[in-house]
Nucleic acid binder design. Structure first.
Lengths: 335, 335
DNA sequence: GTGAAAGCGCTAACAA
DNA sequence: TTGTTAGCGCTTTCAC
């Protein structure tokens, strides 16, 4: 059995409270005893039991992280930022892959609640009313990372997706493209779908005067295959396109792949712009020009917000928008 | 405040022990009381406190996962498998990105120990003596995932890297290649470096009769850039190469990229074989033929082993080797 | 079958 | 400054 505070007390000839004091407020103990206690701690290899502590403090230094899937490159990078922030605060992350599966999520929420996590961060997926209600029952701080809610008051940190959609499109227009297509996410997705699409449409209208984009848009679900398929549909219905803006790097790679299968060159024949700037963006041929998101920072900042909440600090802002940035590589050319 | 077992007892007019019984062995309570208690639980939205439980059971249903970096595609996939296994067992994963940084690791180990995690899984990095000693102090089951130790008796699950190196090389030879190069990991890496390299050398000798591979090998650290650079060195010193076996998909993409920069075609001029079968392997042009590892299964199986250990079950085997498999795509051709 | 009481390892009054 | 004691929320003897 591991030694307890009692063992340390016995060995050093003081009371448990004194041991507890050298652990928590060493200054309040005479040097003589403190040294004795410290020696005993070392000798016994004593380590405090966080369960017992948590029971009293009502703080566990653990936070739950709900995410769709760690194996997703985007998400993994966000987590990385969270990790770094949390270790700075002495907390741990409990990983919960929801798989967008409701039962799995409920199961996790139950576990997290029983384990008395201090807070929760919910990543990358829209917050439905149902999920909100589950969260609300937990009665702990929640922050949204790489997603947000306009209906509920949870703090969030993400990029401004609409502006990113606008800026990406504008970038292509600035390069001289007049027939700019978009491969969007589902318009039912209020985070990475609709807003980026809206930004695209706005830029098309404002900058190019084109209001009807039906011939220029297709939809996918952010994954490679759907990018490939969407491009194939797009190509069938419109041969004038000179640039396509895919709202995920994976879809952009799918686009490039389709184009390559058609014997078309990127960016020679068609320019391709991605979104995210995940690691794969610099490994493709041609290297992908993309609307980069500060994934790591999004994660880091989310966790900092959560910590602030846990310390009952006033949040300077509820909804934080981190800047996106166009990363120029080789898949877009000027025409 | 959350309701406690005491509140439930009061509301249902029974003792705390009875409530505890309906929670843990419902059969030992009369139906009448059981129903009353269950009703109170529902009404109060009572949820047991795992800290209090853990204090008694000395089991927390949490396991620590030490890994180099979640943002690494290979690692993320392994984690995914662990997650799925652990949720089946009702446990949670505490994520620890070590960054291969000793201090960070020590800090995590301290946190994990204080939180009384039931076990540990250590992923993807060689187990040094120093790390072993740290683990050993913890006095909890440890399993190695995607790594192993011949010196210490920790159970492990991974592929047979030497055989994989041999098989990958053989595959290339079977395709008619006589000048097969390898871009290896560091030979000081006893997991993903040395063994694969050894397998390669063995195949070269047995199948092709070539014992001196100095002109055919270069080294990288599994990342994209080092694959690019290693290929550039290789190309400078040997123009006869018709196939290169890079021991990570990322490095293989780096190789393809370098070749493309030289105006060389893959697999037209040079065939390229990767290792791992991470998601990027099917997104490249050409799609990467690779020695696939069952990453998900490695993670899943590791966690199952850990659970078995926690249940004091005898392990049927200490070191498990899961089969690798060559995934044929488009980057290797027959000559 | 059920309840009272002790105790898991710790901290926080409260006295001294 | 220090020790004694109660108690965090739960399970588990041990009587009844």
């Amino acid at each position: 059995m591991s030694p307890t505070i009692k063992d340390v007390a016995k060995m050093s000839g003081v009371s448990m409270s004194t041991v507890s004091r050298v652990l928590n407020s060493p200054a309040s103990v005479t040097e003589e005893k403190r040294i004795k206690v410290e020696k005993a701690i070392k000798q016994l290899k004593y380590h405090p039991n966080a369960l017992a502590r948590g029971l009293i403090y009502k703080r566990t230094q653990s936070v739950g992280v709900l995410l769709p899937d760690v194996a997703n490159a985007y998400v993994a990078e966000v987590i990385r930022g969270m990790e770094d922030a949390s270790i700075n605060h002495g907390s741990n992350l409990i990983l919960c892959n929801t798989d967008r599966n409701k039962e799995r999520m409920i199961k996790y929420l139950k576990l997290l609640r029983e384990k008395q996590v201090d807070g929760l961060v919910y990543t990358s997926d829209p917050l439905t009313e149902e999920i909100f209600r589950e969260f609300d029952e937990l009665n702990i701080p929640v922050v949204l990372s790489s997603t947000q809610s306009l209906e509920y008051a949870y703090p969030s940190v993400k990029v401004d997706d609409e502006k990113a959609g606008y800026d990406g499109t504008s970038y292509l227009i600035d390069k001289g493209h007049k027939h700019v297509a978009m491969i969007s996410g589902p318009t039912t997705d209020p985070i990475a779908g609709y807003p980026r699409y809206t930004g695209y449409k706005q830029a098309m209208k404002e900058r190019l005067g084109v209001a009807d984009v039906d011939d220029l848009t297709e939809f996918g679900n952010f994954q490679y295959d759907t990018g490939y398929d969407a491009m194939s549909r797009l190509y069938r219905k419109n041969k004038n396109i000179t640039a396509v803006f895919a709202v995920s790097d994976e879809m952009a790679l799918g686009v490039i792949s389709f184009l390559s299968d058609q014997g078309l060159s990127v960016p020679g024949d068609i320019s391709v712009l991605g979104f995210d700037n995940t690691r794969i963006a610099r490994m493709s041929i041609p290297k992908l020009t993309t609307v980069g998101q500060p994934m790591y920072d999004i994660g880091y900042k989310s966790m900092e917000k959560l910590e602030a909440l846990l310390q009952k600090k006033e949040l300077s802002e509820v909804r934080t928008y981190l800047p996106h940035k166009i990363i120029e590589r080789e898949s877009v050319r000027e025409i």
